[in-house]
């Protein structure tokens, strides 16, 4: 066996071991490295009241209500598996709207309402001109289509 081939095999074995170790570590981190909890995670695992977390999901259409003081708002966050009521006082980012993604920082109160201290808007991977607003992206056909 030539020294060159030996080096090649050694390098490839080392590389494979390394990638395997890295991917294993990354998948083990799967839950710990999550940037936010989805309502489904909260329901499945339970989050104690008062613990500072981030809650992420979609703002349920029609759930957004503003209090008389003008800065407090109430809305529901869902991930399709569970829905959690949330409230926030302050200035929300421009992209925060019903039917769109949100990541809220804060904690649950004793009644299970999420008290957000900060809101971040999360948008999805669709980009399109204003004329096409109302179209949505079909995951199976990979095409933009008009919403029913």
């Amino acid at each position: 066996m030539k020294a060159k081939h030996q080096r090649l095999i050694l390098a490839l074995v080392a590389l494979a071991a390394l990638i395997g170790a890295g991917l294993l570590a990354a998948s083990a981190l799967k839950d710990e490295a999550a940037y936010f909890y989805a309502p489904g995670d909260v329901k499945a695992k339970g989050v104690e009241p008062g613990k500072a977390i981030r809650l992420g999901g979609m703002v349920v259409k029609g759930s957004l209500k503003r209090a008389a003081d003008g800065v407090t708002m109430f809305f529901d966050v869902t991930d399709g598996k569970a829905t959690v009521p949330a409230t926030f006082s302050g200035i929300a980012p421009d992209l925060f709207k019903e039917g769109s993604g949100v990541v809220a920082e804060g904690s649950f109160d004793a009644k299970g309402t999420f008290i957000a201290t900060n809101l971040l808007a999360k948008h999805d991977e669709r980009y399109m001109p204003r004329e096409l607003e109302g179209m949505s992206y079909n995951e199976t056909t990979r095409q933009l289509q008009v919403d029913q």
Binding site: S27, A38, D124, E125, Y127, M128, R142
Partner: peptide, 24 residues
């Protein structure tokens, strides 16, 4: 894909693009 993240998922994949042609 692995973790919940603030950053959105990939727009351009092997199966297509979710960026409209007018913007792409």
């Amino acid at each position: 894909v692995w973790w919940n993240s603030l950053h959105q998922g990939p727009s351009i994949t092997l199966r297509g693009s979710s960026i409209d042609m007018a913007l792409l």
